[in-house]
Structures are given as structure tokens and as C-alpha cells.
Amino acid sequence: MSREVYERLVEEFPETSLEYLEGKDPAISVKADDLFEVARHLKEKQGYDYLSAVTGVDYPDRFEVIYHLYSMKEGPGPLILKVSASKEQPEVPSLVSLWPGANFQEREVYDLMGIRFAGHPDLKRILLWEGYEGHPLRKDFPIEGYQTIGQEESS
């Protein structure tokens, strides 16, 4: 099913670079600049009205943001979009204006991974407190954190 959606997307956006990735869950790879237009086309023309999950992954050479989209009317099977962002200045356009359910999820990806979302109405930390330094889910952040008084005293 994702194959047909991919073909239709290639027809609609001939100058954008889209790639079809094989695997257990086939995915479509999009560039960050074209993401908003492709997402709007998928929502309004192809009927993908339900955004299930927004995930950030820290690979050795890049960051990646993965969107899982479902359609309420058509059959099962997610449509997966993968967007890459650079390591130095990770930034991806925000999809809150299309799917309001992306609000807290994008804030969480910003909080734990450090990927900024351009156009988000209120991008601030959600799980850790304001003023915390560092993004814990990155691979170079140790699991014990950097400094705590409690651990020094009780160990």
C-alpha cells in the first residue's frame, strides 16, 4: 500500500527528492524543506488524518525524525515518513498546524534530543525542568547525568 502512495507522491511533486526505503515497515524519505508540503498533500488529498507517533533517533552521522501516519477510513498499515537533520544545527519544520496532536510530541523530541521544530507555537521543555542543560537521549549523554549531590552523599 505504501508503494501506491509513493507513486502518487512522485507524480504530484516531481521536483522534490523522495526515496522509498524497503524493510519490515517500508518508509518514504523526505527532505526537511519539502516536508510541510508533502504532509499537507497527504492529509488533505490522500486522507491521512491521524498522526500516531513522532520519534527522534540519534544516528552517528545525522539525526532523524520519523512520523507514523494512519488513515481512519482506509485499511491498516502505517505510512512512515523519515526526515534527516544535520548534527550541528538540527531543525525540522513543525506539523502542529496540520495535526494538533503533534504538539506535545514535538516538545518531547526537543527536550530529550535537542531537535528544534520551526514554527512550533510554544517550544519549551516538557519532561525536564526549565534551565536544565543537556539533552539526555543523545548518545553522548551518560545515563547517570553529570552532577548530583544525592549520589555523592549516599554512595
Partner: peptide, 12 residues
Amino acid sequence: VMGYLHRCQEKI
């Protein structure tokens, strides 16, 4: 406001 029980499950 949430995060008062954030127990780092994804990092674990």
C-alpha cells in the same frame, strides 16, 4: 505540566 515521574525509561 508533567515530568514529575520521568524515570528515564527510554534511556534505560
